[in-house]
Design a binder for these strands. Structure first.
Lengths: 229, 229
DNA sequence: TTTTGTGAACTAGTTCACAGCT
DNA sequence: AGCTGTGAACTAGTTCACAAAA
């Protein structure tokens, strides 16, 4: 037995044990889903972890292990049915329903994200932009996303059923805006502002720090310039 | 023995051993640098790893260990001199010179990134946008970044001394554009298009995958919805 | 035979705890 | 005394390798 910890109940076949699954694993599930989409478009019906790994430069054992956290989706001697596994992954990732997203900040970045086609796929819908500038409120993005006054966040979020907020405001307002988002009952936040934000423990905050990314590239270049001639 | 490779020479005090430093460490160096900037603005001259850790929710031992890869910057009994450590970090990260950046793709996202203020700080300069649409070439972003024809990448990159490319083109063209970037001799790439790209081993490719980030939030919400009432 | 699912081994990353410097 | 720098202990994550299923 592998789990001596958890009291009496062994986890049933339809597991969903969730908490002990690392974020690295769940991120990879997204990647697998994308691979499966490509395979299905190519007319492939069935795939082994081995060949999935080869085609997309992954590790076969890791794929199997990641999937095993959530159930037994494969068939020994065969592999995985593409359509089946896709359905399971979409269900695990919560993509089997429409998820509504608000973007905080209707500046350059916010407007770009509102119309970003990658956000539209797989069940996400950008429902609203929010800003505090009078002249922006009432306008809409090129793609047709309405800009609301940030003070109406709670009302609009409730009405539209918004579950995710994207923070694309200048760094100095980010913590304040996060506070408004949390107060509106939104539990999942994707933050693009640089620097660390403080969120309550029941709120999932994921940050994309463009400064850190760029500086990491700078480090790489500095190494190359220093060493080899 | 785990490292039978590295011959005799122990690394000298001015280390810079680079390769064996993990990316997690170098990413944290960026974070430390940002913290130090804040401290200096606040007029703090000296800081211990302990209080740096407390103020910014980090681990003191990890800070010390991260810094120790690159030298001995602290003073026992005192801590680190803020200004000094800042200078060292900027030098380690290669931020002690201007780094020129090109953005591939003058769509919504590319234009937003071109004018993104976070990119301008710490020695980065957005020198050019590139697109393949005739009507965009010759225009410029609101912030004044010129849009060039993507076929002139090699020429412009050489002339302007561009060291970093940001890929903000639609997913289907991303691999092709990466090829052009590599052919232009650019060795560091920040990719915003979803999906995996293949780059030669001497090119550093860092990807920001917005789809994966959003789906990770979706997973979190799905867990919450499933479990608790 | 093929390929999964998974314990065991391994590798990487983090935190502890303390010797030694100031 | 106070704090760094660092080996040792610990924790997390990955890969191996094989028994069991189809």
């Amino acid at each position: 037995m592998k789990t001596p910890n958890k009291g009496p109940s062994k986890i049933p076949p339809g597991k969903q044990s969730a908490d002990q699954v690392s974020e690295l694993t769940t991120n990879r599930l997204s990647v697998y889903l994308r691979c499966l989409n490509a395979l299905e478009d190519a007319g492939i019906r069935t795939i082994s972890s081995q060949s999935l790994a080869e085609q997309f430069h992954l590790n076969a054992a890791q794929i199997r292990k990641d999937l095993a956290y959530f159930g037994e989706f494969g068939v020994r001697g065969v592999g995985y049915y593409v359509r089946d596994l896709k359905r399971h992954l979409r269900q695990i990732l919560g993509l089997d329903r429409k998820l509504r997203v608000a973007i905080m900040g209707a500046g350059n970045l916010g407007l770009a994200l509102a119309d970003y086609p990658g956000f539209r796929q797989e069940g996400f819908e950008i429902s609203a932009l929010f800003d505090n500038l009078r002249e922006k409120v009432g306008q809409q993005s090129r793609g047709g996303v309405e800009i609301y006054d940030i003070h109406d966040l709670k009302k609009v979020a409730r009405r539209e059923g918004i579950r995710i907020a994207v923070i694309a405001v200048p760094a100095p307002s980010a913590q304040h805006v996060l506070g408004l988002v949390v107060a509106a009952g939104i539990k999942a936040v994707l933050n693009f502002s640089p620097g660390t934000l403080q969120a309550p423990p029941d709120v999932k905050l994921k940050s994309v720090d463009l400064t850190v990314s760029l500086e990491s590239l700078s480090f790489f270049l500095a190494q190359g310039d220093g060493e080899e001639g």
